[in-house]
Design a protein around this nucleic acid. Sequence first.
DNA 1: TCGTTTTCAGAAAACGTTTACATAAACGGG
DNA 2: CCCGTTTATGTAAACGTTTTCTGAAAACGA
Lengths: 320, 320
Amino acid sequence: MAKYANVSVATVSRVLNGTGAVADQTKKAVLAAAQKLGYSPNLLGKNLRQKQTRVILVMLSSLANTFCSKVVHGIEKEAVKNGYNIMICATEDSRKSEETYLNFVRNKMADGIIILNSTLTEEEMKEISSAFPVVQCSEYVDTQTTPYVSIDNRAAAYDAVSCLIHSGRKKIVYIGVANDLISSRLRLEGYRKALEDNGIAFDESMLLFGNYGYRSAMRAVNNFLKKNIFFDAVFAISDRMAAGAISAVRQSGRRIPDDVSVIGFDNTDITYMFEPAISTVAQPQNEMGEAAFRMLLSRMQEEMPKNIILDHKLILRNSN
Amino acid sequence: MAKYANVSVATVSRVLNGTGAVADQTKKAVLAAAQKLGYSPNLLGKNLRQKQTRVILVMLSSLANTFCSKVVHGIEKEAVKNGYNIMICATEDSRKSEETYLNFVRNKMADGIIILNSTLTEEEMKEISSAFPVVQCSEYVDTQTTPYVSIDNRAAAYDAVSCLIHSGRKKIVYIGVANDLISSRLRLEGYRKALEDNGIAFDESMLLFGNYGYRSAMRAVNNFLKKNIFFDAVFAISDRMAAGAISAVRQSGRRIPDDVSVIGFDNTDITYMFEPAISTVAQPQNEMGEAAFRMLLSRMQEEMPKNIILDHKLILRNSN
DNA sequence: TCGTTTTCAGAAAACGTTTACATAAACGGG
DNA sequence: CCCGTTTATGTAAACGTTTTCTGAAAACGA
């Protein structure tokens, strides 16, 4: 390419990057040559030399999680605004996969990473956080070293359950997921606190568990129904589980929301497609993504941003 | 690192890659040093030298499209099996974004790309296909130069509509999307052919259009209902649009499937969560992904694979 | 013991850029 | 006309690897 245009590689670089002075005539020659040869500079060389790629990774466990999609969109918008590009890595919660993608940034193929969810322990998170720029978004482990943006999951669950209670419900089933995610823990805490604050005894047998999915909740509620324990409300930590609960409850002949009130979580599309439309807790996904990117940006500039907690919002539809 | 272990960089490389002979003692020393320093080789250097990254890109328009998620999973599985990693690029149908991600592979930050959907024209597809390895998956433009794996969309639509006809339906509404995607075109053709083959006149006024989403279909059907044109079935090219159609039809007091039969497309989660469960056309998403990766692999080895058409399957539930 | 092979490890080139430095030509002011 | 400044370009180092060559030492075989 350089030889073809009869200039040095330095000049080619200068022309293509618009850096440094170069005569109009040679500039034209270089551009013409580039055009003719279909030349396009090798990013590996460029990034190696410049010690940056302007690529950041977004790690999430599954694409099927529609909640994440809006968060990612927020990240992307802010990234592009700042001249960065994002690449999405779906780990399916595989350790090996997580390791692989973390190594991409450890090994300089990307400048930083935003983790939406992972199976990383506090120790591991600390380790990688000291090795390269990382921020957490939505889910997080609370080390002092890895900043995060999220909502107050405890308060969100508290609000949802309180809403159920204030409309007269007293026997409230909780449908969660038996994992270690911070959201699971805090939402259960919020549920529990709402009960306590309203003088309702916490009852472990009212806790059901699934895997965020429709079918798992349906199964759990069906099993629960067999026990003939009275209940008049359900708080589910995902909308799909709320939908599953509604279906199971209905099949048993009970009416929604008259007999059983239901509130879900995340305000995903299913909430308005379902009949009845599902009441839910909305998170500011876009802002969360935007904030996450801004935090990563400052981390990449060697600053340590403060954690951010954004506001959630209870959205009431027809299931409660 | 090399200095720290008192060896040359060449030896470090040999130890870390297990290539070439190196004495046990030095091997240990190098590994110890790497451990101590937390050394991890720079992939930019490595990839630059080796002229390959073992990364492939998967381009899709939106993460929110749950159909894609299973395809991507199939791709990933096959990729990992072959020592490759995938990165997902969501373009949101932005030309700029598409261009950016294509440039990643043009500029050697990735070895190849699988395009699930894009706004590329035939000309553009040809151009990039001659510049680097690319295959299309699910959606495609039919150039002779860019291989694809997909289903026979025309036959799939034909089967669905025929099924409606054989159960006695004669006035069948088509709900599609007014875009240039091959699937849109072929499914409409299949719809039309099924009518013709069964002696039913094609009627342009039975064609409705939306944007794949629930609400758009609901709106379209509501408008259609106002016209008071009789119909007894709906074929929608997405499950969400099928769901929207069902809701609209029901609100008008008609029963599903007694008064109106509905069949959707893609066999997404909504089909079994919805009441009634939605009949649909299933695509072999996993196999499609796997096939796509294998095709890309052979393209990266300078072979030109043949196009692949996989089998679809009509899945009957309670909406027809 | 002497040649021959094998084992080990370093030196240096190569990958494709950017960029600091050098230098030659053009220019302008006195 | 001379000298300092600007402009335009090339040279070469640097980024961090892998890999080819090369050579020294060790092992081996006769």
